[in-house]
Design a protein around this nucleic acid. Structure first.
Lengths: 134, 134
DNA sequence: ATAACTGCAAACGGTTTGCAAGTCT
DNA sequence: AGACTTGCAAACCGTTTGCAGTTAT
């Protein structure tokens, strides 16, 4: 559980029952989630919801920075997150995802100096066992 | 081009023409590569090679730590790499991939203290522009 | 001799797309 | 009214799998 993230649709899009249902399902997700899970959950309130619409809603939120695809091990999944720089602690036991502002990235200046590499972004995900699954 | 990595099959597997072809194609890859690219390239030397065999060869090397799936943006791909702890600098312009041993990952102790999280592994990939594409 | 390996083709799972019908503003 | 959104079903893409035949050891 947890104080639910304030999750909103981007400015210029319409508010439809389907989007609200998807949004609510994502807002109440506790950890990593898949599109199918959101689909199942959201259909409780919007029975005729289509899976494609769920994907479209996720994409909407991804562009807004409120959802990220999770790259690592196992099945593809997404995480709800706040915009801005942070990384994820992914529990391989229960799938919960916690955010941390601790950043594993060497400073860009160091990469530039040593490799001539201009880093735009980086992806960092930690995989391990969370407190409750320990 | 570049000094080619010494890329070898794991100990207990058989050396077949198909595997050698796949192995060579991977060994001579300059940056990130897809299974389909390896397939195309390897068929020059092993015309009857099947795509499934390419995947099986990649999996072999992945388990040996010589190849990693690349998570980030864009199409799925793999990178050849040496075993051991390191991260990747992925050029979004040309697709080249460089390894760096630089790692500023927060020490496991810090994650444990702050989040009760026991980190097993982490994935870090940098996306930006390499020296030549600057 | 035999266990490992291969190609093929079909199956798979997640995601995307084209389109006609419906809905928000 | 008009642009945006939706559901549906089919298409897509990368990957995996079952299997009968082949090959390295």
């Amino acid at each position: 559980m947890r104080p639910r993230a304030n999750l909103r649709l981007p400015a210029r899009v319409r508010s439809t029952p389907q989007r609200r249902a998807g949004l609510d399902a994502i807002a109440s997700a506790t950890g990593a989630f898949t599109a199918a899970e959101i689909y199942d959950r959201a259909r409780a309130t919007a029975p005729k919801l289509g899976l494609a619409t769920v994907y479209r809603t996720i994409e909407l939120l991804r562009r807004a920075g409120s959802v990220r695809p999770l790259a690592g091990e196992g099945r593809p999944a997404y995480v709800r997150c706040r915009p801005g720089h942070h990384h994820h602690l992914v529990c391989v036991a229960c799938g919960s995802v916690e955010e941390t502002e601790l950043c594993a990235a060497p400073p860009a200046a160091e990469l530039a100096r040593r490799y001539g590499f201009a880093a735009d972004t980086h992806e960092v995900d930690f995989y391990g066992t969370c407190r409750r699954c320990a």
